[in-house]
């Protein structure tokens, strides 16, 4: 088995709207390897979220091919190959935190014991032990988002797709969650695709940074990060970090040059 998890070739997606076609993605070529932490960064309208949704079989490409685990995105979705974290936590208010995390497990037919064990495990992983019986609306936004990550982790898919999961949170909570996410990635060895519009977040988290530009949505630059796997928060003051951040910014600016 190859270690390529996601492979996109000449991928394109055009939305037909009343104002004419919108090229959300055009000629996108990218391979994501097993264990990669890939960030997608770019201004709004660059197709980063659309790309993630295509991987998850929530949107259908109109050109090119994409495979997830060597199969079509639909087969991957049916095989429950990935966990998806949305921009908002989207927890069901009628279920407790534990109940929300059990939701995918119930749907996928895990036994009761297994549900309880996995729920306890992932709650521990996102440091929400003891909050199992609380309702989502009794928790802060950051805790809700952590619970939604736990929910995506519960069925232990090897691939994690995250769409600006920390976009709505304040800087301090965000730093903390970034740190936790890195630890989790390091511990579990999962492949993570992460959409963001924050340069420091992308540089801090990723092994590879995919810079995208809009109209049509396309890849402007792919940056391999030389940073080590072990990343304390203050690595953000290092010279290497700042250099990568510069390169990302340059890529973003180049993409913006045409408007």
């Amino acid at each position: 088995m190859s270690d390529i998890v996601i492979s996109a070739k000449d991928l394109g997606l055009t939305f037909q709207t009343g104002d004419g076609p919108i090229h959300a993605l055009k000629d996108v070529n990218l391979d994501v390897r097993q264990g990669d932490f890939v960030s997608f960064i770019g201004p709004s309208g660059c197709g980063k979220t659309t790309f993630l949704r295509v991987m998850a079989d929530l949107e259908q490409p109109t050109a090119g091919t994409i495979t997830v685990n060597g199969t079509s995105p639909e087969e991957a979705r049916r095989a429950r190959a990935y966990g998806y974290v949305f921009q908002a936590a989207g927890l069901y208010p009628w279920r407790t935190i534990g109940g929300n995390i059990r939701l995918p497990l119930e749907i996928m037919g895990y036994s009761r014991d297994e549900q309880a064990r996995r729920t306890a495990d992932v709650l521990e992983l996102v440091e929400l032990g003891g909050f199992e019986k609380k309702y989502p609306w009794q928790l802060s936004g950051g805790m809700q988002q952590r619970a939604s990550i736990a929910r995506a982790l519960a069925f232990d898919a090897d691939l994690l797709l995250m769409d600006e999961p920390f976009g709505a949170l304040d800087e301090i909570v965000r730093d903390h969650l970034n740190e936790q996410l890195l630890k989790l990635w390091d511990r579990t060895g999962k492949t993570i695709c992460f959409v963001t519009h924050s340069i420091p977040e992308a540089v801090y988290l990723s092994t590879r940074i995919v810079v995208m530009s809009p109209r049509p949505g396309r890849i402007a630059d792919v940056i391999e990060s030389p940073l080590p796997r072990e990343r304390p928060l203050d690595i953000r003051d290092s010279r290497e970090f700042i250099e990568i951040a510069h390169r990302v910014r340059d890529g973003l600016r180049a993409g913006h040059g045409d408007d």
Binding site: R78, G90, L103
Partner: peptide, 29 residues
Amino acid sequence: TGAMQRDLMRTYAAGYWKTLFKLRLPAAM
């Protein structure tokens, strides 16, 4: 139900009845 909640059920490959009982009926209460 919000688009996101329905997308979530889709990522779990949940069928019609599971979506009905786990998401839409509780949301309709």
